[in-house]
């Protein structure tokens, strides 16, 4: 669905994207992660033909971008950074204008498709109120509706739940999961790890314009070969586990072991009480923090 090779973008002397190879398969739900300023947005803009690459190739739905954007981009729904609309017009007029502005949006079915999209994002009852009077959350919903009007095969969404209240986030998440289940490929660019963790099966992590990690969420969060346990008797346990102990914080111990069952039996056999014992998995946050260096928000001496 999305394939980039050696994608590079330079603005003058500043390299925003320094060679990214993305692979998003059909039906995927892909989380595109990275700190602010890592080249995430520039990459998304290159996927949509907004920014022209300095070097490298972009393929979306099998067609090169921007060369053959006209043939494929109408099958892609997009939300780039923030939603945008004409403030003096209502939701329906905005969607109608946008739909009429490009190929693939049949005039005959337009009204029905707009109604359906507004229904999906929960704006069905919005009426003729001008967008100017909308709340942030309503604008976000309208932006999503605009991405959904043509029932796209691929959704490229940048921070889709931005500005929504918890219930709104819940609704949109459910909508996206349902769309994905029905075959729509999701490409989610975000810095909200929780959101990606709940929505995506695969993630790619960019840092300073490079893709530093691209794998399934499951693989990234695979057991590390250590066990995390909690005990009310940590001193005792530490004495016993001498060489195997990797880390200790209060009553939480990380123990390297190949056989958690044997470890448990051994500790319990010594009379040590265990309140919790689980194979260690890294959180996505840890994975991302490991893979990335520093936030671009924070100036560094170089």
């Amino acid at each position: 669905m999305i394939r980039t090779r050696g994608l590079v973008k330079r603005y003058g002397g500043v390299t925003a994207v320094a060679g990214i190879d993305l692979d998003v398969e059909s039906g995927d739900s892909y989380g595109f992660l990275g700190p602010n300023g890592s080249g995430k947005t520039t990459t998304v803009r290159m996927l949509l033909g907004l920014v022209l690459p300095t070097a490298g190739t972009v393929e979306v739905l099998g067609a090169p971008i921007p060369k053959r954007a006209r043939q494929v981009l109408h099958r892609v729904g997009a939300l780039v950074e923030s939603p945008a609309a004409y403030g003096h017009l209502g939701a329906r007029a905005n969607l109608s204008l946008l739909d009429a502005a490009g190929p693939g949006g049949s005039r005959r079915t337009r009204r029905a498709r707009i109604d359906e999209a507004l229904e999906q994002v929960g704006l069905a009852e919005v009426g003729r109120r001008p967008v100017r009077a909308y709340s942030l959350g309503m604008r976000q919903r309208l932006g999503l509706a605009a991405a959904l009007i043509r029932r796209p095969e691929l959704l490229i969404l940048d921070e889709p739940t931005n500005g929504l209240d918890p219930r709104g986030i819940q609704e949109i998440r459910a909508l996206l999961l349902a769309l994905n289940a029905a075959g729509t490929t999701l490409f989610l660019s975000s810095h909200l790890l929780a959101e990606v963790e709940q929505l995506c099966r695969r993630v790619g992590v960019v840092d300073r314009g490079r893709l530093v990690l691209q794998d399934t969420l499951a693989a990234l969060r695979a057991p590390t070969g250590a066990v995390v346990l909690r005990t009310p008797d940590p001193e005792w346990a530490v004495g016993l586990l001498d060489g195997e102990l990797a880390e200790r914080s209060g009553d939480r111990l990380v123990v390297r072991t190949d056989d958690p069952a044997a470890l448990n039996a051994r500790l319990v056999g010594q009379g040590i009480r265990i309140t919790e014992l689980a194979a260690q998995r890294r959180t996505l946050e840890e994975v991302v923090l490991d893979a990335t260096t520093t936030s671009a928000d924070r100036p560094e001496a170089s």
């Binding site: 033909g49 780039v80 939603p83 946008l98």
Partner: peptide, 18 residues
């Protein structure tokens, strides 16, 4: 300025046509 340009280009409206 309104941000709608990126949606028009990504629609895709085609730059020359636009």
């Amino acid at each position: 300025q309104a941000g709608t340009l990126r949606y028009l280009i990504a629609r895709p409206a085609g730059r020359t046509r636009l």
